[in-house]
Design a protein around this nucleic acid. Structure first.
Lengths: 271, 271
DNA sequence: GAGTGGTCTAGACCACGCG
DNA sequence: GCGTGGTCTAGACCACTCA
């Protein structure tokens, strides 16, 4: 950390780094950051988050504790946490504390899935049925490697599954995961786990998906895809190509989904 | 406004409403709001925004001025403006001031359009060519009325246009606008205006689109649509149904777009 | 150099959740 | 009743823009 900015009355000694025991980050300098104090604090909290010091669902230390740990005012910690909360990395609960965000919550199941039934409440539809069609270890094609920031031929896990809503097959997904981070992942694990796949990856492998980018197109399914989705091959479907990222914008999943939109639609809000 | 919360040392007289001259809002009570002070301030600023006290692109008063006007601290005004900035209603520029957001800026042309070329930079593609195919006064169908919160048979303006990128017709749009708010809108106005349509509506009618919701599906174009987009009728396209809202969540536009996704894709980021 | 937004602090009190 | 996050204030100084 660089020389911390001005403390009006309490001039901080130049090298006074936070007293936190900062674990060595995976692939970056300790904290380059010539940035506002609260940004630096945010970075330090982020490091603890990604190092697993606080697990998903757990509470992080209170603002007062963090302020003491980092030797800054509570207001500065607050602003750092505000940004983390705005990015959905933590969740604030008044009177209780601030918690590490997780995919394993009833309220926000399928945080990243924007498909909604055309009619009725999402809740009347009930949870999705998942069925794993395939799950195997293979090697990254050039395309998959590029999406996952790997080299061609690096080990990847490839899976295919179907999500059904109210008994209707609605989503067909092909999923690629970097083999290294998910050693030992089995089809059983994917099939048996109760809850979203991202919750399972979080729990079993400590990898948290934090944000994703999607490219959406209209396509016709091939024969096999149409059969699996139980639609005619002339029925257009949404092709949703997703790259999901962990902390530090590291891509951790490539997913190609085909969404039926005869009974559902992709919902988006734009500001 | 309810009794304003606690001023530590400067107890505010109970009825001390901000000294701002509040114009009567269109269809709501002066400010129900049993909410934090900064939320009430935000509401008051919002009223000035929607009443046109400050026009798009103009600067709003400085934080210090607003603090004086509303008799609160600068920090409270700041928090109110922070939220407005987060919602893209205003833009802060350090050293210059805070400005009313507008659709008429070079940087953020087509703020609501999420379609991007598959390859190359969006800027290499240049601006879109617009051609108006149709623009007429008509009456709202039940469906259009529901979307725009009108009654069936209310006057609406219906338009159809094509957006082309690099000479290729890419988007076909049918647009419905409530007739009352846009009296006197002509096809010439739509065709001649340099810049996004929302910028024109902003300038000519004082109606600012602030947010939109989209429902996206994959469909096949009908014959006419295919002809206009210069594609085969067997080419699936994205159907994007957008409802755009002004302040206070009042729907002001229904738009049905067909997007070609053979050369472009709909891009979305999810958190 | 004046004016604007941006950062930081310190301290007070409020609203909530839980034992 | 205590601890948590949430609100509000007051005052200082920084960083940027422009005349």
């Amino acid at each position: 950390m660089s020389s911390p900015p001005h403390h009006p009355d309490n001039p901080q000694p130049p090298g006074a780094a936070p007293s936190a025991t900062v674990l060595s980050p995976p692939s970056a300098l300790p904290t380059p950051a010539f940035s506002p104090l609260y940004q630096q604090i945010k970075g330090l909290i982020l490091q603890s988050l990604q190092s697993g010091e606080w697990k998903p669902g757990e509470a992080i230390p209170s603002e007062i504790e963090l302020a003491a740990r980092f030797r800054v005012s509570q207001g500065t910690v607050r602003k750092a946490i505000d940004e983390l909360a705005a990015e959905n990395l933590v969740i604030r609960r008044q009177g209780k504390g601030t918690f590490v965000a997780t995919h394993a919550e009833q309220q926000v199941q399928y945080r990243f899935l924007k498909l909604r039934p055309d009619t009725g409440d999402a809740r009347t539809e009930g949870p999705a049925q998942r069925s794993i069609l395939e799950c195997r270890r293979t090697r990254a094609s050039a395309e998959v490697a590029r999406a996952l920031a790997l080299r061609s031929g690096d080990p990847v896990i490839q899976a295919r599954r179907i999500l059904s809503f109210a008994g209707e097959p609605t989503i067909l997904e092909d999923i690629w995961l970097p083999g290294q981070a998910f050693k030992g992942l089995t089809a059983e694990q994917m099939a048996d786990y109760q809850g979203p796949m991202y919750a399972m990856l979080e729990k079993e492998f400590g990898v948290r998906m934090v944000r994703a980018e999607e490219k959406i197109r209209a396509v016709l399914p091939d024969e096999e895809q149409a059969r699996l989705l139980e639609i005619a091959p002339t029925t257009p479907v949404l092709s949703v190509e997703r790259i999901a990222y962990t902390y530090n914008d590291i891509p951790m999943e490539l997913r190609r989904g085909l969404y039926r939109t005869d009974t559902h639609h992709y919902h988006n809000e734009v500001h």
